[in-house]
Measured scan of single mutants.
Amino acid sequence: VTLFVASYDYEARTEDDLSFHKGEKFQILNSSEGDWWEARSLTTGETGYIPSNYVAPV
């Protein structure tokens, strides 16, 4: 399981994006799509795309 933590807050801009807060942890589901990764929030359980430059490895 690949875990990352949010370095910043992010507000979703499309329905496919995932909003999150600094400190929130994610399981990365797919990182092969470039700068936007499909992730599941371990806080909310929601799945969506997050900007990879807003998160760091745990």
Rank of each mutant, 00 (worst) to 15 (best):
S32F: 09
P57V: 08
T44E: 00
T43I: 09
T14P: 02
D16N: 15
L18W: 03
G45I: 01
D16Q: 14
L3A: 07
A39R: 00
A12W: 03
Q27N: 06
S31H: 10
V5I: 12
S41Y: 02
D17P: 01
S32G: 10
V55F: 09
T44P: 01
L18M: 13
R13C: 15
G45A: 04
T14L: 09
N30A: 08
F4M: 10
T43F: 09
A39E: 00
H21Q: 12
E24H: 06
S41I: 06
V58L: 12
T14E: 08
W36F: 10
I50D: 01
Q27G: 03
S52F: 07
T47P: 01
R40C: 08
Q27A: 09
T14C: 15
Y10V: 02
D17R: 15
E15R: 11
S32L: 11
R13K: 12
D35K: 08
Y8N: 08
E46G: 07
A39T: 02
W36H: 07
L3E: 10
F4H: 07
V55Y: 03
P51W: 07
L29R: 04
T43E: 14
E24R: 00
T43Q: 08
D9C: 11
G34D: 12
D35A: 09
Y49H: 07
E46H: 11
E38A: 08
E15Y: 09
Y54I: 07
Y10W: 09
D35Q: 11
I50R: 00
N53V: 08
P51V: 02
T47H: 07
T47G: 03
V1A: 12
E33A: 13
L42D: 04
E38T: 10
H21K: 15
T43G: 06
D9F: 04
T43H: 10
S19V: 02
E24V: 04
T43K: 12
D9Y: 04
T14A: 11
A6P: 04
S7M: 15
E46W: 08
E24M: 05
L42W: 05
N53T: 10
R13D: 08
E38S: 07
P51K: 06
G45Y: 06
Q27H: 11
S19D: 04
N30D: 12
P57G: 05
A39D: 01
S32E: 10
L18D: 00
G23T: 01
S32C: 13
A56Y: 14
G23V: 00
S52T: 07
N30H: 08
L42I: 09
I50V: 09
D16Y: 15
W36K: 11
T44W: 02
Y49C: 14
L18Y: 04
D35M: 11
P51N: 09
R13G: 09
E38L: 15
Y54K: 08
S41A: 06
E33I: 11
T47S: 09
Y54G: 07
L42V: 08
L29M: 08
V58Q: 08
G23F: 05
S41P: 00
Y8G: 07
E46F: 10
T44C: 02
W37G: 01
V1C: 15
W37I: 06
S31F: 15
G23I: 00
A39S: 02
V58C: 12
G34C: 13
E38N: 07
E24C: 05
I28G: 01
S52Q: 07
E33F: 12
E38C: 15
R40T: 11
E24F: 03
Q27M: 12
T43P: 02
Q27K: 07
F4V: 12
G45E: 04
E33G: 14
R40Y: 09
S41Q: 04
D16L: 14
W36R: 14
S31A: 13
L29I: 11
A6F: 01
Y49N: 08
V5L: 06
H21T: 12
T2S: 10
F26K: 01
K22P: 03
S7F: 14
K22T: 07
L3H: 10
I28P: 02
A6Y: 01
F26E: 00
F26D: 01
L42M: 11
E15D: 12
D35Y: 14
F20D: 01
Y49L: 14
S7K: 15
Y10G: 01
E11T: 12
N30I: 07
V5D: 04
T44K: 03
V1F: 13
N53C: 14
P57N: 05
L18T: 02
D9N: 07
A12C: 06
S31C: 15
G34A: 14
V55H: 03
R13M: 12
V55R: 01
G48F: 04
G23D: 05
S19F: 02
Y54D: 03
L3C: 13
W36D: 02
L3V: 13
S7I: 15
A6L: 00
T2P: 13
H21E: 08
S19C: 06
Y8R: 11
P57H: 06
K25T: 12
V55P: 03
D9K: 03
Y54S: 12
K22N: 04
K25S: 07
S19T: 09
E15M: 11
G23E: 03
S19Q: 04
A6K: 00
G34V: 11
T2W: 10
S52V: 08
T47C: 10
T2I: 13
D17Y: 14
D9Q: 04
S19Y: 02
R13W: 08
T2K: 11
R40A: 05
S31I: 11
F20L: 06
R13I: 11
S31T: 12
S32D: 11
A12R: 07
E46C: 14
A12Y: 02
N30W: 07
V1T: 14
S32V: 10
K22W: 05
A56N: 10
L42C: 15
W37L: 08
R40D: 00
A39K: 00
T44H: 04
D17G: 15
L42N: 03
N30G: 09
F26R: 00
P57R: 07
H21F: 12
L42R: 03
L3T: 08
E24D: 15
S32P: 10
S41N: 12
S7N: 14
K25H: 12
P57D: 05
E15V: 12
T44D: 03
W36Q: 06
D16M: 14
E15I: 11
T43V: 10
T44R: 03
I50Q: 00
